[in-house]
Simulated assay, not measured.
Amino acid sequence: MRLYPGARLDNLVSDDLQRAILKRVMAAMVVGAGLVMVLSFIRVTIEGFQPKFAAMWIVAIGIFLLWRVHARWRPSRIGLVLYGLFTAMGSVALLNTGIASIGAIFLFIALAMASIVFDLTRLIALVLFQLGLFAISIVLINADIVAPLPANGAPYLLQPKTWAFHGVVIAVGGMVSFYGTSVLGEWYRNSLEQARKKFFDGVAVMSLAHDTETGQHIDRVSLYAAEVYRWLAGTERARELTFSVDELANAVKLHDLGKISISDGILKKPGKLTAAEFEKMKKHTVLGAQIITTMMERSEGMDRPTMSLARDIARSHHENWQGGGYPDGLEGEQIPLAARIMSLCDVYDALRSARTYKPGWSHEATVEEMLGMENKFDPVLLAGFRQYNDRFEALYAEAP
């Protein structure tokens, strides 16, 4: 998702989420305004009143009032008011104490707040407005109406309290400005992750269009795979984990995507498949890998790391550690690690689950059967399963 010219925040997020983001940004601004107000009152008691302090109070009071009404106002209106308050504050500071002021930081904050709610065209207009204010300042300086550095400017800049005050104000302004950006970034990352999850869930459900497997099977093997990933992270195989746990958990959901091309007569046959039927069934591995490859080729925005992982899993999750599996007869570490993980997870869930042609097995019977399959499973994975199979039992019980 990209913020393109003409895009607005309220076109990209729901009204409720938009207000939630605004509420968090405003809360940070209220804290910052309160701190600046306290510091400015302290300076008034020490140095006496100056116009810039009044400007700070006006901005702080404006922020407090906005906090009271922000739930009833549109974000664009609040953004414009904040822009106006901080631009006014920055302009007063620059005109009052010139380059000895922190007016520039207030102008920056003004644009930062506006950037949250305005499209690029309006933001450029607001930047140009501020540049116009600088141009006016230059005219006033040339006319000797405004001094770029007042008579007491140099001594003022050399005082430690000036540096301390300016440092606090800059820190608060930076916090507020970048907090708003971080909130939007957090929303974007969460939205992207949710979109990725929905995509893989949707494609996985599509693969079950006429299969006897269920959505629960897909959810469970995803949970098992994440559990196995955590085992491996503490073993010699950790160096092979070139993918993340989330990528694996999403990729395994597409392991049987190729079954969408297998006929109902084979997929839903209640009895044992004939040799010819089994040969056709085995093709779901190659077909699944081909479908995923086509999806990757036709979409530049595809999650390529996860899809590449899914392709390996779809093609190779029926290979055997000691050979004799399908479709390529791979063995040992020729089999992609993700496919080896999926093989363990798939067999466990297949044995535990009831099908039209068999009842579901108990956990104990499943474990006993699988521990005898040294020819099929990666020995490191099988050793982990021997130690941690109770987690599979718990996940099977907990999964919806």
Score class of each variant (00 low, 15 high):
Met1Asn: 03
Tyr4Trp: 05
Tyr4Ala: 08
Ala7Gly: 06
Asp10Met: 13
Asn11Phe: 06
Leu12Gln: 08
Asp15Thr: 11
Arg19Thr: 13
Arg19Ser: 04
Ala20Met: 02
Lys23Met: 01
Met26Trp: 06
Val30Ile: 13
Gly32Trp: 15
Met37Pro: 04
Glu47Lys: 04
Gly48Lys: 05
Gln50Pro: 01
Phe53His: 05
Ala54Lys: 08
Trp57Cys: 10
Ile61His: 07
Ile61Ala: 04
Trp67Met: 13
Arg72Val: 05
Ser76Ile: 02
Ser76Leu: 07
Tyr83Asp: 00
Thr87Val: 13
Thr87Phe: 07
Ser91Arg: 08
Ser91His: 12
Thr97Ala: 08
Thr97Asp: 09
Ala100Phe: 06
Ala100Cys: 09
Ala104Asn: 00
Ala114Ser: 02
Arg122Trp: 15
Leu123Cys: 05
Ile124Ser: 11
Ile138Phe: 15
Ile141Gln: 04
Asn152Gly: 15
Gly153His: 03
Pro155Lys: 02
Leu158Ser: 13
Lys161Met: 05
Val183Asn: 04
Gln194His: 00
Val203Cys: 12
Met206Val: 08
Asp211Gly: 15
Asp211Met: 04
Thr212Gln: 14
Glu213Cys: 07
Asp219Arg: 01
Ser222Leu: 03
Tyr229Thr: 04
Thr235Val: 10
Glu247Asp: 15
Lys253Thr: 04
Gly265Glu: 14
Ile266Gly: 03
Ala275Glu: 11
Ala276Met: 07
Glu277Pro: 04
Thr285Met: 05
Thr294His: 09
Ser299Gly: 11
Arg304Asp: 09
Met307Arg: 05
Met307Ala: 15
Pro327Gly: 09
Gly329Gln: 05
Leu330Cys: 10
Glu331Val: 07
Ala338Glu: 12
Arg340Ala: 11
Asp346Thr: 03
Arg352Ser: 13
Thr356Tyr: 06
Tyr357Val: 08
Glu364Thr: 14
Ala365Gln: 15
Glu369Pro: 01
Met370Leu: 10
Glu374Lys: 09
Gly384Arg: 03
Gln387Trp: 02
Tyr388Asp: 01
Asn389Gly: 02
Phe392Asn: 11
Ala399Leu: 09
